[in-house]
Design a protein around this nucleic acid. Structure first.
Lengths: 185, 185
DNA sequence: TTCGAATATATCGGTCCGATATATTTTGAC
DNA sequence: GTCAAAATATATCGGACCGATATATTCGAA
C-alpha cells in the first residue's frame, strides 16, 4: 500500500493531523506493518485533499503552529474500501540490516557479533513487554487485536531464535581468518 | 543497507552479473532480508564501478546480450567490512499489505477475508517446504545457515498464527454493518 | 536555567522501484 | 512438431519515497 492509502487507513480510526498520523506509524497500532516519514505523509495528505478524499480543517492554536486536522470524506471511505479489496495482497516485505551483518558472521569479530545480537535481544524484550501490557487493547475491533497478536507472535519468534542461537553466532565469528582468499574459491 | 552495500554483499560470495544479483535477492540466500529490482541494481553497479569498488568484465556470448560479470576489488572488500561495523544495525523494517487489510477485518466481507488468509497460508507452506528441504545448505558458512534458520523460524511463526486465528478473523468480518458511523464516534 | 524532548508543519535532494523496452534460447505442453 | 511461455540478460524513466534539515514554541527534568 502506498502512503496515500495507509494515511486513509489511519484516518479511518478518527480525524488526525499529519503529526498524529506519523505517531500512528512510529509507535501506534500501525507500527509493525506500515510506515512513513513526514517527507511522505505531508505530500500524500496534499494529494488526498486535492482529490477530495479528505478534508482539512485548520485549528488555530495561540502559541503553536496551527494544527491541520484531516478527516475522511465519503469518497475517502470508498477509496479505502476499494484499495483493500482490489487485489490479493502481495508478499510481505522484510528488510533487516542485522541479518545482513549476521549472514557474514564468520568473517567478523566475535565481540562485535555479540554486541549487535545482545542489543537486539534487549530491544525485542522491551518492545514485547510494551506490546503485551498494552491495556489500550480494550474497545478495539477484533481485527485490530488479532493483528496486534500477529505482531507479538512474530517478534517473540525472532527473540526466541536470537536467544537460542546467540552463542552459535558468536562461536562462528572469527573462525575464518582469510575470508577474501576463501571467497575467491 | 542501501542497494550498493547489499550488492557488495552478494559479490562477496563470488563474482556475478546484475541478473544473478537480482536472483540472489529474489530467490537466493538474501531473499528474506534484502531486495532490489533492476532499477536499483544496475545504477548501483555503475556507481560501484566508478568508485573502484568492483570491476566489470564483459563476457561476450554469441547469441545473447554480453554478460557483464562484476567482482569485488580490495577497496570493495574494505567498504563492505566497514559498512557492517559502522553502526549498531537499526530496527528491521516489516511492511505488510495483508496485515493492513486484516486490521480492518471487522468492516469487510467474510469470504474476502477467508480468501486472503487462505492464499497466504498456502504461500507460507510452499515457501517453508522449499526452504527446509534446501539441500544447498552444505558448505555454507555458519552465519549463513543460522540466518536461514532465522528466516524459517519467523515464517513458521507467521504461518502458525494465521492457521490458528483464521476462523477468528473470518468471524470478525461482517459483524460491523455501519463502520462509517461507528468510526465517527 | 538550560537542555532535550515533544508538538507541529514543510521542503529538498537523492535514492529507490515498478513498468517497460529489447532480443534470444530453452523448456514444456499439446 | 509447433507454439507459447519462461528464463537469460541489460537498461532507462517517471513517480514515489525517505532522511536530513529548517523553523518555532512549550514543557519537564536535571
Amino acid at each position: 500500500m502506498d502512503t496515500k492509502t495507509t494515511c486513509l487507513g489511519v484516518l479511518a480510526l478518527g480525524e488526525a493531523s499529519g503529526y498524529e498520523i506519523r505517531k500512528a506509524f512510529e509507535e501506534g497500532p500501525f507500527s509493525h506493518f506500515a510506515d512513513g516519514g513526514f517527507g511522505s505523509i505531508y505530500p500524500a495528505l496534499n494529494k488526498l485533499t486535492d482529490e477530495g478524499l479528505v478534508t482539512c480543517t485548520a485549528h488555530y492554536q495561540e502559541k503553536r503552529p496551527s494544527k491541520k486536522v484531516y478527516r475522511l470524506t465519503e469518497g475517502g471511505w470508498d477509496r479505502l474500501e476499494q484499495e483493500m479489496r482490489a487485489r490479493i495482497p502481495g508478499e510481505d516485505k522484510y528488510r533487516s540490516d542485522l541479518l545482513f551483518i549476521l549472514f557474514f558472521a564468520d568473517w567478523q569479530d566475535p565481540a562485535w557479533i555479540a554486541r549487535v545480537i545482545d542489543t537486539r535481544i534487549d530491544f525485542y524484550r522491551e518492545k514485547l513487554e510494551a506490546m503485551k501490557d498494552c491495556s489500550t487493547l480494550d474497545g478495539l475491533m477484533v481485527g485490530q487485536r488479532l493483528v496486534h497478536g500477529f505482531g507479538c507472535a512474530v517478534y517473540q519468534a525472532a527473540l526466541d531464535y536470537l536467544v537460542e542461537h546467540r552463542d552459535a553466532f558468536v562461536a562462528a565469528a572469527g573462525n575464518c581468518h582469510d575470508c577474501r582468499q576463501t571467497a575467491a574459491e
